[in-house]
């Protein structure tokens, strides 16, 4: 903590500007430690035995650490089933969202057609509509479609991602018209141009959108809570909410489950980190 931050000062010593930077740095580090404490707690709690749980605030000594919490998740509850359910529902949703959003964004960015302005306006307004307004009629609709308590009932209504359409439109506006035109001259079909010309150009947006869409579906709670009834179909958020009641005192297992549930998102973030930050803020900063 006493380490001095690296500073490029013209005079070599620490002038007033530099001291301000040191103070700012120390403030940031303190706030960062507060932000990280719950995460460290989560990791620590998942490797503590039940009797050590209250004895150590964070990590126990290494020889007292255990993986039994993880083992009990897989032996006592059907955790692997919930994990697979979540992975299946999320990957299917994200892939289809990606296709539809990028196709829609391409249509809006690289073509001029009748009804375009009206469509854009309608999509913009629809982004301000709180999703719970549709909860009751959606339930009714899926009931009549006999999709209640199925994964399809979870996936299909979640396929529309309006934000995604705008992200892709924004990115694809930068595609030079000449490039599209050249594709046509070469005899490529309209879909071929989208697939071979437009998509490769917007790779960062694909990365960013994949992460945003993944997180949105992975963490989805309200809709699955309404649609799913059978235990064996549960996704992780629904399953863990039940475990809170089930594992009354076995906090270790609950925290191990929470940690495992978060891990896929973290892994994906590290894979797509660069695209994510640029893709996320691009639309907002330019718009």
């Amino acid at each position: 903590m006493k380490k001095k931050p690296f500073m490029k000062t013209p005079s070599g010593g620490l002038d007033r500007e530099a001291w301000t930077t040191v103070m700012i740095w120390l403030t940031l580090v303190s706030v960062a430690m507060i932000f990280l404490a719950p995460i460290v707690y989560l990791v620590a709690a998942s490797v503590k035995t039940m009797e050590d749980f209250h004895r150590y605030s964070f990590f126990p000594p290494p020889d007292r650490m255990t993986l039994s919490n993880f083992a009990s998740l897989f032996s006592q509850v059907n955790f692997s089933r919930f994990l697979l359910n979540s992975l299946f529902v999320t990957c299917t949703t994200v892939t289809l969202q990606l296709l539809m959003a990028s196709l829609g964004g391409y249509a809006l960015a690289c073509y001029r057609f009748r009804g375009q302005q009206g469509l854009m306006l309608m999509l913009l307004v629809s982004m301000m509509i709180p999703a719970p307004v549709m909860l009751a009629p959606l339930y009714e609709l899926l009931f009549h479609m006999r999709l209640i308590d199925t994964h399809a009932g979870l996936i299909i209504p979640g396929l529309v991602n309006v934000l995604g359409v705008f992200l892709f439109r924004q990115a694809m506006l930068n595609i030079p018209a000449d490039l599209v035109h050249a594709g046509r001259v070469d005899g490529a079909g309209e879909f071929g141009i989208y697939w071979h010309v437009a998509l490769p150009v917007v790779r960062p947006t694909i990365g960013a959108f994949t992460l945003i869409a993944f997180m949105g579906t992975w963490n989805s709670f309200l809709w699955p809570q309404v649609v799913l009834q059978s235990n064996e179909l549960f996704t992780l958020p629904i399953a863990l909410n039940q475990l809170v009641g089930l594992y009354n005192d076995d906090y270790g297992a609950l925290m191990a489950g929470t940690l495992l549930a978060v891990l896929p998102v973290v892994l994906l973030f590290f894979l797509l980190q660069k695209e994510f930050i640029s893709g996320l803020t691009e639309g907002a900063v330019k718009g």
Binding site: L99, M100, A101, L103, G104, Y106, A107, L108, Y111, F113, Q116, L119, S126, I129, V133, M134, A136, P137, L138, E140, L141, I156, P157, L159, V160, V162, V165, R184, E190, F191, Y194
Partner: peptide, 28 residues
């Protein structure tokens, strides 16, 4: 045809949007 293509590209999105957003909104 470049005049038709955008409508084709928007169709999957528009179908899902109409059935699972616009209709439920009106229905609610």
């Amino acid at each position: 045809d470049p005049k038709i293509a955008p409508y084709v590209f928007l169709t999957p999105f528009a179908v899902i949007f109409s059935v699972f957003i616009a209709w439920p909104l009106f229905r609610s």
